[in-house]
Design a protein around this nucleic acid. Structure first.
Length: 405
RNA sequence: GGGUAGGUUCCCGAGCGGUCAAAGGGAGCAGACUGUAAAUCUGCCGCCUCCGGCUUCGGUGGUUCGAAUCCACCCCUGCCCA
């Protein structure tokens, strides 16, 4: 085995907290460790928030360790109280199943589900759903001190706003997952986001008590904007890894537009690029940092959507920001030249409603080809006499519109 | 179960019979400045057939010329007591 993964993860800035750090380091040096990360199947696609854990999994796998991606089909029926101020909506079995299948497809780009230390995908519904209540509280429940649980960060916040017994059970359940995986798959390490820390500790504790075996956990940093907000929020909601939910172009643009200060962090966490190369790319503080942004956007898009889509996205970006209109994202719209610009904007998806389109025009943010749209009343024919034209919204949205009458 | 404080537009949070589509902040979008960055300043920020109209303030029914604001019942949440 080459370098210890922990060194790699540390160097790239993944690690936030680790339990028994030195012991874990040694263990990772000596053997192929089975580890797991849990994913809540709350949507039918992974989003950028899952990206870091997945990258970490990939790094781990490359270093010879064995990943288990655990879909929280059972725990999703309860809802994790950590980091939420409200009760999560419960989900049906069918949607959970559907979602986890989608997850697997997306994960395949990063981790291998075949080969020597292949990853496996499990669903905790398979064991949690059959649990017998009395047995569970006798076997597992005894090991949990309510007093201690209440001091956990994830419950503390909820003590203010209200916490149901249902949610209170999330921690023991997740701990039980770890125990189950430890017993059946020899899994001894759990990774995850920092919001999972208390849940993970609970699992480590439980394994030590029930099995008298060592178990470990480690959490990762969260990508945040410089203001401390979770990164990955866009106008349309989360930044999804599914190309039908977030187009590769929008995905590309998101990273093309990250703040200067975050470029390096993103490169380290979200790509496999060599550290030396990253350092070289990010050594400038002025507009030359844009080169790094382009690279970042391209690399990340390529990892998520493949080379072809990444190339396309890059070309579109070039077209949109460097003039040419050939490679622009194109929208075919059922309309004719005599329609008001406002309607075209809605049809082309540039505005959510006519009112919004009107406001954009009033604010001077809309132009067609090179002419600014002056009035809300204007018809398309005033600006274009052809069935193809470029519609600009602000500085960043440029779409080629083709009329289909 | 009893007492008590609440449920307001994407989020936080004012409003407490007309002047309320509803203060303020955040997020978001657009304009200026720039480097497709940040910061800053400005405008917009329920929907429409847009000088007007329509639908919103937990739900349902009332009172009133008129309700987010008053009344009744119901649902949900916090806190205190059991």
């Amino acid at each position: 085995m080459a370098r210890n993964v922990m060194d790699i993860l540390r160097e790239r800035g993944f690690i936030k907290q680790t339990i028994y750090e030195d012991e874990l380091y040694k263990k990772l040096d000596q053997e192929s460790v089975v580890f797991y990360i849990g994913f809540d199947p709350t949507a039918d696609s992974l989003h950028i928030g899952h990206y870091i854990p997945i990258m970490a999994m990939a790094h781990m796998q490359r270093a010879g360790h064995k990943p288990i991606a655990l879909i929280g089909g059972g725990t999703a029926m309860i809802g994790d109280p950590s980091g939420r101020s409200d009760l999560r909506t419960m989900m049906t079995k069918e949607t959970i199943e559907h979602n986890s299948n989608k997850f697997k497809v997306q994960m395949q780009r990063f981790i291998n589900f075949e080969g020597e230390n292949k990853a496996i995908l499990l669903n905790n519904a398979d064991w949690l759903l059959n649990l017998n209540y009395i047995e569970f509280i006798r076997d597992i429940g005894v090991h949990f001190s309510v007093n201690k649980m209440l001091t956990a960060e994830c419950f503390k916040i909820r003590m203010e706003t209200g916490l149901t017994f249902l949610e209170f059970n999330y921690m023991p359940m997740q701990a039980y997952d770890f125990l189950f995986l430890n017993r059946n798959y020899n899994c001894s390490l759990q990774l995850g986001g920092n919001d999972q820390w208390s849940n993970m500790l609970a699992g480590v504790d439980l394994i030590r008590r029930k099995e008298q075996k060592d178990a470990f956990c480690m959490t990762f940093t969260l990508l945040e904007t410089s203001e401390g907000k979770k990164m990955g929020k866009t106008a349309k909601g989360a930044l999804w890894l599914d190309k039908d939910k977030t187009s590769p172009y929008d995905f590309y643009q998101y990273f093309r537009n990250v703040e200067d200060q975050k470029v390096k962090e993103c490169l380290c966490l979200l790509t496999f690029m060599d550290m030396a190369e990253i350092n070289e790319l990010t050594k400038y503080q002025d507009e030359r940092i844009n080169t790094a942004k382009e690279r970042l956007a391209y690399e990340v898009t390529r990892l998520v959507h493949g080379k072809e889509e990444a190339d396309k996205a890059r070309e579109m970006a070039l077209a949109a920001f460097a003039g040419a209109s050939d490679n622009l994202p194109t929208q075919t719209v059922k309309a004719d030249l005599n329609m008001p610009v406002v309607d075209i904007m809605v049809l082309a998806g540039v505005a959510d409603s006519k009112s919004q389109a009107r406001r954009l025009i009033e604010g001077g943010g809309v132009s067609i080809d090179e002419a600014k749209v002056e009035s809300v009343e204007d018809l398309l024919s005033k600006y274009s006499s052809s069935k193809e034209f470029v519609l600009h919204k602000g500085k960043k949205v440029h779409i080629k519109v083709v009329l289909d009458e």
